[in-house]
């Protein structure tokens, strides 16, 4: 349905970044509203990294995958 538009390095970077952000948010390193923002961004990075599709790339027909 949707074409994968992330290269392997992109996916690995997103998953690592997602885990770090979730750790900062959910792990209680950053508390309050900022923590929630980090949670949301972490979840988005993790999800887009796992599925290999970035919806933000789509309207611009951009892709890191060659």
């Amino acid at each position: 349905m949707f074409k994968v538009n992330e290269a392997n390095w992109d996916r690995i970077a997103r998953v690592v970044l997602g885990i770090v952000l979730l750790y900062l948010g959910l792990g209680g390193v950053v508390a309050g509203g900022m923590g929630i923002v980090l949670d949301i961004f972490g979840a988005i990075f993790l999800l887009t990294g796992l599925v290999g599709i970035c919806p933000l790339y789509m309207p611009f027909k951009f892709s890191t995958k060659k």
Binding site: V15, I19, L22, G49
Partner: peptide
């Protein structure tokens, strides 16, 4: 293989959290 690795890593990280 990369999908497996990423999913296992993410799953383990969520478990640790």
């Amino acid at each position: 293989a990369l999908d497996r690795l990423l999913r296992l890593t993410a799953g383990a990280a969520l478990g640790i959290l």
